[in-house]
Lab assay of single mutants.
Amino acid sequence: MPSETPQAEVGPTGCPHRSGPHSAKGSLEKGSPEDKEAKEPLWIRPDAPSRCTWQLGRPASESPHHHTAPAKSPKILPDILKKIGDTPMVRINKIGKKFGLKCELLAKCEFFNAGGSVKDRISLRMIEDAERDGTLKPGDTIIEPTSGNTGIGLALAAAVRGYRCIIVMPEKMSSEKVDVLRALGAEIVRTPTNARFDSPESHVGVAWRLKNEIPNSHILDQYRNASNPLAHYDTTADEILQQCDGKLDMLVASVGTGGTITGIARKLKEKCPGCRIIGVDPEGSILAEPEELNQTEQTTYEVEGIGYDFIPTVLDRTVVDKWFKSNDEEAFTFARMLIAQEGLLCGGSAGSTVAVAVKAAQELQEGQRCVVILPDSVRNYMTKFLSDRWMLQKGFLKEEDLTEKKPWWWHLRVQELGLSAPLTVLPTITCGHTIEILREKGFDQAPVVDEAGVILGMVTLGNMLSSLLAGKVQPSDQVGKVIYKQFKQIRLTDTLGRLSHILEMDHFALVV
């Protein structure tokens, strides 16, 4: 994948999101292997301009796509893939009243899908469409860049269908997702969380590099694949309309690839034109409109599966009536509230959605109805927002919020430890010299600072030695090549209790 991002070429006709291997024109390309080798690009942008032909009021008969309808489940399912879809609609009884809503608040519980998330729908649909058009064949390999849930859905379907599955996901995604993927037989590649989507090191860039190296491999490409919004247009939206008897006044959905909100909203605009569509985008993402909503100094966020630093091709923002931004604290607070007060075992993005819903639905009156999409299960986040310690460490809970008995030293300040200034190293000294210094002084790690004293990161003896043994660096290389740029900081005025929580999850903390 090139470091400079080429513009994806656009073909003359058809839909841009065809499933299957992508040609340089962004659509299915038939021909000899030699032709494909000559024409197939190194990668295709996940934010390529959409060429979708959908228009409100256009006859369904003019759609270029294969459409399906929700099917009634048999008493005995032939395999677990038949437990994807037909998820329950559940009334939220307490939270709406707590925040003064007059309307009825309903939750579409997508964590009841077989793999635990709304992404099971698009995973199965992308595979079925690729099999139907002859792209996927027995023994082929599926590769997908994902925040985890699409990966789980694909790995689940691949396990049943017999495909090899490789999932490329950023490091910030939970260990629970990784464990589930491994249990399903998927191979996992992790990428830096802070890598831009168009960087060769991003999950998108690495996935395309693997595709170019592995024979008979395919990126189904949830960011561009029409099967993504079509899955929701054909099934999720129809289920909502049936469950609500066609009567709903507002739908609120958090947005990642945009397939969920695009597919549902398009069908609702056709069948229930008075329904307002509300999009939820986390602070630090750029999906919301108008652009002024996205202006923030924050560039990272903890909530998973929603928000991006690019506009995915499948996201149709014209069908969203209003956007709201959400933050991590309210997302996790509301997710825990949904679990504790409503018994809905949902993930953090569901918290984002409901946090926005109780604001947006203030305009609705008694007798009206708001539906929220709860995308995934708490299963993926047992060591994250479900953990009091994690919430404390991230600053989303305060010590006084917890009532468990603490040891005698818990409320003492870090400054009472009488710490001395640490050994520091410059980023320009060599790895070999740094190892000598650390061994001589008896230290395992040291902060790396520039000549102005600005902290650049941390270097550890173990990481340097393993990097040297693996051949990633040489003793003569500058130590700046092996620094940890993500590390926890703590102030002298913070409590030892807070430091204790940090050290339970990290090997060190830097006192500043």
Rank of each mutant, 00 (worst) to 15 (best):
S3W: 02
T5I: 12
P6H: 07
G11W: 07
P12E: 10
T13Y: 02
C15I: 12
H17M: 08
G20F: 10
L28A: 10
E29N: 12
E29S: 13
A38H: 10
K39Q: 12
E40C: 04
P41R: 07
P41K: 10
I44F: 15
R45Y: 02
P46Q: 02
D47L: 02
A48R: 10
P49S: 15
W54Y: 08
W54N: 06
Q55D: 11
E62F: 07
S63A: 15
S63V: 07
P64A: 13
H65C: 00
A71G: 13
S73G: 14
K75Y: 09
L77I: 05
I80N: 07
K83S: 10
I84V: 14
I84F: 09
G85K: 06
G85A: 09
M89I: 10
M89R: 06
R91I: 07
G96I: 08
C109D: 02
A114F: 05
R125G: 07
M126H: 06
E128T: 09
T135E: 03
L136D: 00
L136V: 08
G139H: 14
D140M: 06
I152C: 02
L154D: 00
A155T: 14
A155G: 09
R161F: 07
R161A: 09
Y163D: 00
Y163G: 00
R164H: 14
I166S: 08
I166A: 03
V168A: 07
M169K: 06
K172R: 09
K177Q: 04
V178H: 02
R182N: 02
L184Q: 06
L184C: 06
E187W: 08
P192V: 07
A195I: 07
F197S: 07
V204N: 07
V206A: 09
I214S: 01
I219N: 06
D221E: 07
Q222W: 00
Q222L: 00
Y223M: 06
Y223L: 04
R224V: 07
A226W: 07
P229R: 05
A231G: 13
Y233R: 00
A237Y: 05
D238I: 08
D238Y: 09
E239S: 06
I240V: 06
L248S: 02
L251I: 15
L251N: 00
S254I: 05
T257V: 01
T262I: 04
R266I: 11
R266G: 06
P273G: 09
G274D: 10
